[in-house]
Design a binder for these strands. Structure first.
Length: 137
DNA sequence: GCCAACGTTGGC
DNA sequence: GCCAACGTTGGC
């Protein structure tokens, strides 16, 4: 069971919007990077990930789950990229800011820190447990 | 608003 | 296939 992290600018797509979509979830479109695409392709049903607000907020704010595996992204004219469907699972009682993540030595290897531009990232089991705990879960 | 890091494009 | 130029992302 793998874990993931999805970045979104709240001005474009926020956690509140994701949560409002409920159990039906939504598609996670717009990935145009081949490393992020590889991550999307690797995902299996039921795998969970962090929802991260970039730019404004800069914090892990919630947990989402894959409810449909990789299929073509209809917004990609080139036809090269795909997407998955995600639903909100729960909000973190206490969002974990990038500042706190960077201040935690055990999270120094997080892709969020080492390759901040990657929009869909793998998260290790250790990182998953630690960030969850820091968020109050 | 700046700019470093990174990806992509396109000329050769 | 290389690499310079350009565009975008995202932290600060």
């Amino acid at each position: 069971m793998a874990y993931w992290l999805y970045k979104s600018e709240p001005a474009t797509w926020s956690w509140d919007q994701q949560a409002a979509a409920g159990a039906a979830g939504t598609f996670w479109n717009g990935v145009r990077n081949h490393v992020a695409r590889k991550n999307l392709k690797t995902m299996r049903l039921g795998e969970q990930g962090f929802f991260y607000h970039s730019n404004e907020g800069k914090a892990v704010v919630g947990i989402v789950e894959v409810i449909r595996t990789y299929y073509p992204d209809h917004t990609d004219e080139s036809g090269r990229f795909g997407m998955v469907d995600l639903k909100a699972v729960e909000a973190l009682p206490r969002p974990v800011t990038l500042e706190r993540i960077k201040a935690e030595p055990r999270l120094s290897g997080m892709v969020l820190v080492t390759n901040s531009r990657l929009s869909v990232q793998p998260v290790t089991e250790e990182e998953w447990a630690l960030v969850r705990a820091m968020g109050g879960l």
